[in-house]
Design a binder for these strands. Structure first.
Length: 347
DNA sequence: AATGCGGGGGT
DNA sequence: ACCCCAGCATT
């Protein structure tokens, strides 16, 4: 059902004026900074983004620098942040902007929406925050806050519900402060009207008109369908050393961790004998082999149960897929996802 | 409409 | 364990 949110606007803005967090990308909301921060913030918490944002804009201070950056440098700036296609899309969009928009992020919701990596939320956020265009920016926070206020048990993953909320917000978004309004809704969701645990309703500026609070239903809103369970995968991770170098290889260009670097790994959990057999068959002549124990790494949809071995070689076999690098080179040049961190740290 | 895509922090 | 996060692209 459609809902009239018109009463929340002034309470929300007054609260935001007093309670807005100081964030790096709020210092100077130039379109480029807003864009970078919003892409980083997709499915990623503010605290995780902070250090990445500063480093990114220092290294790539404008759209042109982003468009011309080497992919390795780009990925290195994103290493550990996850969802690595975000940064590739960022560069694709930067090139489009240089070629088709005179190097300027377009001040238009619909034009922004055409750029790689920019969907309805991000287009709304950039348009409203950087260009003061009165359009909604609906993220997970906004769904939670608005549906609790409305006391609505709508399934927020349904397109019809999303469209309706867009319309409802478009009606009340203040034309003089659209960016602040959108950020205030998100800020409220991130700090007061929080998921999990208990929302801090007594601190909420719109508690008095929140139906979820009045009904005591706020904790069971919003409604979304049950998520599927993660797939479990067993893997064997090999830390292979020859003299002062470690073997790494590049992952395939599609799928999980596409195009990133990894420690050599094998499907399934090999026991120590199998690990030795595999290594002498495919990698080289073994000087020593020791177990590095078990680890696990959780992705959004997959869980790796890993066993690791440290292998030192007397002699290496030719293998075009492996390259041999020092630890320092890994840290400087090669993007190694967090999944392998535990085993690298043991060496 | 459903699925794939990272990593981390809170309960 | 399970939650979800300033979502988007692809199928």
């Amino acid at each position: 059902m459609s809902y009239n949110y018109s009463e929340i606007t002034s309470y929300l803005l007054d609260w935001y004026d007093l309670n807005a967090r100081i964030l790096p990308w709020r210092d100077n909301p130039k379109p480029y900074y807003v864009w970078i921060s919003e892409i980083m913030l997709q499915q990623t918490r503010v605290e995780a983004v902070k250090p990445y944002f500063d480093r990114f804009i220092t290294n790539l201070p404008d759209i042109k620098a982003l468009a011309m950056a080497e992919e390795d440098k780009l990925l290195k700036l994103w290493e550990g942040l996850g969802y690595y296609n975000r940064v590739r899309n960022l560069q694709t969009a930067a090139i489009t902007i240089m070629n088709e928009y005179d190097g300027v992020l377009p001040p238009s919701y619909n034009e922004l929406l055409k750029l790689k990596g920019i969907g309805p939320y991000t287009a709304g956020a950039i348009a409203s925050i950087a260009y003061q265009i009165p359009v909604p920016a609906i993220d997970g926070n906004v769904y939670r806050v608005t549906k609790r206020i409305a006391g609505s048990f709508d399934d927020i993953t349904k397109a019809s519900v999303q469209k309706e909320l867009e319309k409802d917000l478009l009606v009340i978004i203040p034309k003089d402060r659209p960016g602040d309004f959108n950020q205030a809704l998100m800020e409220l969701g991130a700090t007061i009207c929080i998921p999990n645990g208990k929302p801090l309703c007594e601190k909420c500026p719109v508690m008095h008109l929140c139906r979820g609070f009045r009904n005591g239903t706020m904790c069971s809103i919003p409604i979304k369908p049950e998520k599927k369970k993660r797939k479990l995968e067993d893997r064997t991770i090999l830390v292979i050393e020859y003299q002062d170098k470690i073997a790494i290889r590049r992952r395939e260009n599609k799928g999980l961790l596409a195009g990133l670097w990894e420690l050599p790994s094998v499907d399934g959990k090999l026991n120590i004998i199998e690990g030795e057999e595999y290594s002498s068959k495919y990698i080289g002549n073994i000087k020593s082999l020791e177990s590095l124990g078990e680890e696990k790494h959780i992705f959004s949809h997959i869980e790796w149960r890993m066993v690791g071995y440290r292998i030192r070689l007397n002699k290496i076999m030719e293998d075009n897929n492996l390259i041999w690098v020092t630890r320092e080179e890994i840290e400087e040049k090669y993007t190694l996802p967090s999944a392998f961190e535990a085993y690298i740290k043991k060496i």
